[in-house]
Design a protein around this nucleic acid. Sequence first.
DNA 1: CCTGAACATTGAACCAGTTCAATAAATTGG
DNA 2: CCAATTTATTGAACTGGTTCAATGTTCAGG
Lengths: 197, 197
Amino acid sequence: MFSLINEHINRCVDFTGAEIQRFNELLVVKHIPKKTLMLQEGEVCNFEAYINKGCIRTYYIDPKGVEITLQFAIEDWWVSDIGSFHERKASKLFIQTLEPSEVLLLSPETKEKLLHEIPKFERVFRLMIQKNLTRLQDRFLQTVTTTAVEKYLDFIDRYPTIPQRVPQHYIASYLGFSPEFLSKVRTRLSKGQDVHE
Amino acid sequence: MFSLINEHINRCVDFTGAEIQRFNELLVVKHIPKKTLMLQEGEVCNFEAYINKGCIRTYYIDPKGVEITLQFAIEDWWVSDIGSFHERKASKLFIQTLEPSEVLLLSPETKEKLLHEIPKFERVFRLMIQKNLTRLQDRFLQTVTTTAVEKYLDFIDRYPTIPQRVPQHYIASYLGFSPEFLSKVRTRLSKGQDVHE
DNA sequence: CCTGAACATTGAACCAGTTCAATAAATTGG
DNA sequence: CCAATTTATTGAACTGGTTCAATGTTCAGG
């Protein structure tokens, strides 16, 4: 139940058995069916969820009604709307399970309690956010500097298991183009090969 | 010298006079002339710099040689390549003063020392990165959902002082389009007004 | 095992933003 | 204060990706 997450946090900081145990007591396990919205636009996000099993998508619906997928999260990832969670303000995001999922939840109160009791966790969460930030920076750069083909090839290279788990039009919305165009890119790649270097 | 930054950190967490004083001892003041590169691609970033006075630009040069401006930082902002700084790995970024600047520097060693001596700072930096992350998330969404006109209007609304301080083509490279096109957007706005709602 | 719904493909017309090239304006420092 | 360089504007031709609509495919649930 907790082995994955305990390994996860021990990668950043050294904890004693007692600390780990206390941490585990504070976590709430939850099983969520497929296609369930864990958070909707306008709500305040009251969790940080560590995924033990499953696949979860975070997305945004823009003023024109277009869905933008921000993240596909699978085993050993966290999902949350960090801004909403910490500042207790309305989220702009939707968070939705794509598969039946098992998550370990932390509420704002529990997280505060944890940070208060075991301040070493400040570091765990700082490192976690730092990693998030650098990943988002990379993604941002990629978004503005590469073509659709490059984005797609990089995506299947970086997340080889995702295309088998999620519908293709969600991937298009993650990569920032229309489902039709992703389809065209794929046929172009499989036909022409497009290797040219 | 330190009043701005002390106020800055006290906004997040309550510190004692002694803690603040120790913090100030650890900071290194530096004056940097205009147009100086503080960091170049390939180097490891060895500072987190708080800007007391001046204007600093962070940018990336993509494989095709195009500059992408990531951030304009002015008074009361931090600049660094956080990923490079913390993981001691080569940066992909350039950091350059646009004006003569006065900065307060923290090296990785000093930062570690600070965090070790006064663990409350973990929280300051976590909050700082969190703010960074939510800002970047917003920017990312904006990048993929809005048109050039909207991006430009939002920019001058959000950072009204920047256009007077930096050349226009840097702003274009921040907003993600060509300098020529920004120019066209501006004339279109000033002529047609483009109010249509 | 069948049916409806969700998903994927294809093509034609279209558009936001790019590129290139030429000219004009502003800034800077010697 | 002038020359050199950097910055901004404008126009014409172009392109990567969108939109819309029609057709084909897959898959989950009753």
